[in-house]
Design a protein around this nucleic acid. Structure first.
Lengths: 235, 235
DNA sequence: ACGGGCTATGGAGCATCGCTCCATAAATGG
DNA sequence: CCATTTATGGAGCGATGCTCCATAGCCCGT
């Protein structure tokens, strides 16, 4: 009976919520944001909508689960116990998210949407925990833990959501040449703006063309960290 | 003929891109995010889809135009010439956006989505200009204008997109009592999390229940501003 | 061994969406 | 006054998320 029982745990092993989420991520990675439909899922999984909705309940719920899965692996690369300085912990977690977004172009939009629709969902919670722990280790007084961590998380999410490949297609990450071309076009467009309405944009058009997203992301992190350690000097 | 010409400028004044955007904002404010459909628009404007698509081209374009309109008025409340300290200019612009989001609940999701889909669209440009000008006045060296402003804008957008009414309905802003109830429930849920997985979240559950979004938003702004003035001390 | 009850499946189909097409009415220009 | 252009609104297409339901597979008590 032991054998029967072990087999029965998976019935015919056809469908699991886990397997659905997994294929959803595959589909999102391969074809892009707009291609994750229940029909595409039924095709890949050789089943019908009823079977999927038995496990998943909602399309938004599936997207949330897919996002949570990717974010979890992105943050799980760090060891459980902190090894370096708290600042490095924060940088590592932030970069984990940043790289996950560049690797999964659909993640940026999903992070943003779920941040608005369910501000304290599992994804936000996970990120908050990963950033909050080193913030605590940073010597920030307990009364400021929440606000300080919020500031960091908000910056990270704002920056990662804007850092998406600006290619026409949604699926392919876009080559380096495409990116250079895009930045060039944008920079030129900025030069042509109305000097009365957009003097500042025109002034930074050059910097914008030559900037590196990842490097700038880290600079922003350090800027916020500087603010934190200035307001709360380590004892 | 002059009279004819003046009349002809507006034909029968039935449809304008401006009028469509205006009704779109009304609809979004009244019924909520998911209720802005072309059919709802044709109903309110007593016309057909063809007429609307003659002016608008795309549903996303309409949403972008609506967002841009609201953001423009939110930022336009400030005088053209700076009157106070650069820090106050930045706070004013940020609060303008913050209040616009609380007034138009759909704005948060739209800001987020457009930030990912079109990172350098008109909306982002407008916000960048409003924040960049006081950043320049802050004495930040020219080479750091772009990065510094980016950091601020990213924090502002990240924070405003999370600050949405967490009510079930999408339309009504949600009463004060609803918010208190929601925070209470969330705080209690956090207490019940696994202590091994979420020690930090559990530790800040109390602060989370009692926090004020707007106040915390401003604290975050000041934190970033502290980082800026620390890295770039005013001469 | 076997049959009732629960779990899970996949297909048919519904309501609704964004959007296109097109006949045509209104304004313009020669 | 007519030909041309501009603008309109309705019919309808393809596709979507999701529900409903007949039924197949599995568990368990007898």
């Amino acid at each position: 009976m032991a054998v029967r029982t072990r087999q029965s745990q998976r019935r015919r092993q056809v469908l699991t919520r886990e397997r659905i989420v997994e294929t959803a991520v595959e589909l999102l990675d391969a074809v892009g944001q707009g291609a994750l439909t229940v029909r595409a899922l039924t095709g890949r999984l050789a089943t019908g909508p009823g079977a999927i909705y038995w496990h998943i309940g909602n399309m938004d719920e599936l997207l949330e689960a897919a996002t949570d899965a990717v974010v979890a692996t992105a943050l799980a690369t760090r060891p459980a116990q902190p090894v370096g300085a708290p600042q490095d912990e924060i940088r590592a977690a932030a970069l984990g998210l940043f790289d996950a977004v560049t690797e999964h172009p659909w993640l940026a939009a999903q992070l943003a949407v779920q941040l608005t629709r369910n501000p304290w969902g599992p994804v936000t919670l996970r990120i908050f925990e990963s950033i909050g722990r080193p913030v605590r280790a940073l010597g920030v007084p307990q009364g400021d833990w929440f606000t300080t961590t919020s500031t960091l998380v908000h910056y990270i999410l704002g920056a990662t959501t804007q850092t998406s490949q600006a290619s026409g297609d949604d699926s392919v990450p876009g080559s380096e040449a495409d990116r250079a071309e895009f930045l060039d076009a944008a920079s030129r467009a900025w030069q042509d703006l109305d000097p009365d309405d957009y003097p500042f944009i025109r002034a930074i058009a050059d910097q914008m063309r030559e900037h590196d997203d990842r490097e700038q992301f880290l600079t922003g992190i350090d800027l916020v960290l500087t603010g934190i350690t200035t307001l709360h000097p380590p004892t």
